[in-house]
Design a protein around this nucleic acid. Sequence first.
DNA 1: CTGGGCCCCT
DNA 2: AGGGGCC
Length: 705
Amino acid sequence: MDYSEGEMEEDETEWNNSFVDSVTAAASDPSLNKTSGPTPAHRVILHFDLDCFYAQVEMIRNPALREVPLGVQQKYIVVTCNYVARDQGVTKLMSVAVAKEKCPQLVLVKGEDLTRYREMSYKLTELLTSYCPLVERLGFDENFMDITKMVERRLAETPESYNFSFQGHVYNRLSADVKASDHPRLALGSHIAAELRDAIHSKLGLTGCAGVATNKLLAKLVSGAFKPNQQTSLLPEDIGDIMGSLSGVRKVPGVGHQTAKRLQALGLVSVKDLQLFPLGDLGKEFGGPSAQRLKNLSLGVDDSAVVPTGAPQSLSDEDSFKKMSTTKDVLEKIQELLSSLVERMHKDGRPPQTFRLTIRRYSATNKWFGRESRQCPIPNHVGQKITSDSADDAVVQLVPLAMKLFHKMVDCSAAFHLTLINVCFSNLQTRGAAVGGKGSITSFFTHSTSQSQDASSDHQLSAHGVMTQFTPPQKTVATESPRGSGAELYGLNRKQRPAVAVKKPPLQKESCSTTRSHPEIPPGTHRLPPNVDPEVFRLLPEELQKELLSPADTNSLPGLPTCSPAAVNVPNITTNKSPQSVSDSRNIKDVEGAVAKSDPPDWTTTVNRRPEGLSAFLGENVTEEGRPSFPRPADCEFPGNVDPTVFSELPPDVQRELMSGWKQQKAVLKTPSSRKPGRRSPMIKDRKAAGKGTQANNLLKYFKP
DNA sequence: CTGGGCCCCT
DNA sequence: AGGGGCC
């Protein structure tokens, strides 16, 4: 129904017509255009923007931090800071070094784990949703709301003689001399905004800014006019002013770095430049739809609807680092990420159907370069496991999947250097009929339902009690007490799980017994002992591998240490875990389990004929015919005139780039001088090496001007 | 040009 | 699968 104002921005054929319609509708006199469907010509849109969100959450957790300059640190960056710190010159996204130098007393709190922020963020969205269903999230700390209906209802109820007024600021005006009666809807909107900000503060302890305007763009722009903990409304007659006040196109939401650059190449740097630039010319560089959108934005026109965000469509977890260059480290990191992510998935309750692994490789020429990813479907039973009882089992199943994807991207026979790993679940199964009706799911629904009633009942504002529609199976949230202010917001969630999870103490017995469930393994066949990490195994010298595979040892071999393979010496392979890795002894054990469980029984029959999945897991090179082969340096990739020895002595970066170049040449005969990425890409798509071809593309870009 | 997400659109 | 955008 809100289809009204556009929303087909990218529909190429119809776009132009629908745009013209919607724009004229929006631009023309609001009051007369009611006829054109259910969409109000005059929307009232709110934008909420919490003050220094992460810092606020930390200050709620520890009120003593309110008095001191506080920064929230991720890696070596201060991602945000409280206003005490800002007064001393600290800014967002400032390096820790600079921040400390500006403000020596700066107190830093680690903020890499987003759990608390995420939880608080959703509490806020849920709170807003309890007043009005049209809430759209933008990041963790911003929300749009379309309160048109709410406003209309109030308007209908207000007496003829009502004296309208604005709450908070009115952009570019002294609120004294604005005639609020000329803008009754916005005026009412400003009161609703004030009430909501108050509710946010009393219920969650958070302060923030709000913007009140007629579309999302303007609401967002105006919300920042008065910064901490204030609100601002924008009258339609001041749209030109606020757009003109922006220092450059980059300040327009929707115009990112890349777009700004392209605009600049056209000579467009100010908003006004963009406003005046011929649409046709703009279309030549950006295409019709994008050009229109950009131009609209520059004029303050934005007919996009507030689309209720609902539950996230994907959950991901990532970590960045200076350098990661061994398969073992990758494996451990992936496992670590997966463990926490699976835990989150479990609370979410929707079984994911696809898994994605993405990495960022270090490249000397530019390290801020893009990521590469591979994704694959998640077997149904695994997906169910994530959400049902045993998340640990799920991790065990997922690690091999992840490693398989990893090896699709990274050739482990060559040096590699990663700076980021991300794991992501998406394609979340929305209706969990398949979940197999454990009691837990139903209990969640009842619980959260009761909560939503709580929230809506004690407020005159509330129109709908529909908070639960996307509440994650975080029954948890429901723990918010009637008066719930703050303290019990956190941490209480966690504890419903053990009750279910205790069923299986995760011990090596588990994986061993699983492995032994195939006692019919023929004697004398080659197989990895159940407690040997295949990744580590792969890295061993061939001789050691043979020893390990010798039949006599199959069941007696103790586990390999998790430390670097170089440190392993054969006779001393004992169960001793390297101290560094003890922190989570499941690390290795889980992987063992993974191997045992994910492998069809027949994988044990011979080392050389494993299922593809396992081969990838082991880091073997797999040819296109599916024949596994152990890694050889630069397998067959050298042009004839290249001396392998010389090559091997080159820096890894150079090696990789050269390799990419060669592979590129193999894939595409013509040397790619074309600047357009889109031109050539169809050609290299078919090859199995498409991934590497793509990378070659990227590397070649470095040599462009 | 950093950090950990999330989104949409090819 | 990647690009761009947002915070």
